[in-house]
């Protein structure tokens, strides 16, 4: 039965969504393995078109959070909403992820692109066009026929991003995409991410690099011990962190969160 109060509530929720649509949000998100709590009490809202960076020390749970948000692992508690609805397989197809270590199929560069597009149901001339565009974007035209696994680290990272973007996602997760790349490759990868943002793709980027966070982020989520320690606009948080962990980390002091890896 719909009474006026619940109608009002739905309406207000509707308005709230229209004013500031969250493409993805998490409520009370937790993840535990064999009693070890690795992610806990994560609440977040990522707005469409925004650039979010996730920072925090090694083992803070950044990669796990991306996996959860992308639906690769199931949360132990809480929920993830995609455009206000539970995350499902169809939603995951609107997202793409570039892994910390890029996964290249044992095929040519072109065949790697072809596979992703075929899986996404892009066929015929449209597929060829997108492949050509992706190759051009990643500047890999000359290497199109090379086995993808013979590419250099930077080239593989460019291919991984181009492959992800060729599927025209609404949201792109990037897990430390420029780690171990030289400055030129880093720049090339950052340009690709910038292109994606310009095309309206929401980006969520994990990085340890402050300068990169400032270049590629609007908002920052700072994680420590599986929790969100601090969030806010990236300049503000990086210049003047409010939490002790974030300050310690940014100043390069080692910080051990009390009870961070405690089981609960």
């Amino acid at each position: 039965m719909l009474d006026s109060a619940s109608l009002m509530k739905t309406f207000r929720a509707d308005v709230a969504e229209k004013v500031a649509p969250s493409v993805i949000s998490a409520r009370g998100l937790g993840f535990a393995v064999e009693g070890r709590v690795l992610i806990r009490d994560v609440d977040l809202d990522i707005k469409a078109g925004r650039r979010t960076v996730i920072m925090g020390s090694n083992g803070a749970g950044k990669s796990l959070l991306l996996r959860l948000l992308h639906g690769l692992i199931a949360p132990s508690s809480g929920e993830i909403l995609w455009n206000g609805r539970p995350l499902d397989k169809a939603a995951r197809r609107r997202q793409a992820m570039v892994f910390q270590r890029p996964v290249m199929l044992r095929r040519s560069v072109l065949a790697n692109l072809d596979f992703a597009l075929r899986v996404h149901g892009v066929h015929g001339p449209a597929r060829r066009d997108r492949e050509r565009a992706a190759l051009a974007m990643a500047r890999l035209e000359d290497l199109a026929a090379s086995p993808a696994r013979t590419l250099s680290g930077g080239e593989q990272q460019r291919l991984a991003i181009a492959r992800a973007l060729a599927c025209a996602p609404d949201l792109l997760f990037l897990d430390e995409p420029t780690v171990s790349l030289d400055p030129a490759s880093t720049h090339a990868v950052e340009m690709l991410i910038g292109d994606a943002h310009a095309a309206g793709v929401t980006t969520v980027l994990v990085t340890h690099d402050r300068a990169q966070a400032l270049r590629l982020g609007d908002d920052v989520i700072f994680m420590a011990g599986g929790r969100i320690a601090e969030t806010g606009p990236v300049e503000k948080v990086l210049q003047n962190p409010q939490s002790e962990v974030a300050r310690a980390w940014l100043e390069g002091r080692l910080h051990f969160e009390p009870g961070a890896s405690e089981t609960k």
């Binding site: 996996r67 992308h70 639906g71 690769l72 397989k89 995951r92 197809r93 997202q95 793409a96 992820m97 892994f99 996964v103 199929l105 044992r106 095929r107 596979f115 992703a116 075929r118 899986v119 996404h120 599927c167």
Partner: peptide, 25 residues
């Protein structure tokens, strides 16, 4: 083991998975 997350990320169906694994191996 190497491909599983990439497959899940792309949303590769079971038949395509087997086909791709056989081809890549």
């Amino acid at each position: 083991r190497e491909y599983v997350e990439q497959f899940a990320s792309l949303g590769v169906g079971p038949l395509d998975r087997v086909g791709a694994l056989l081809w890549d191996a």
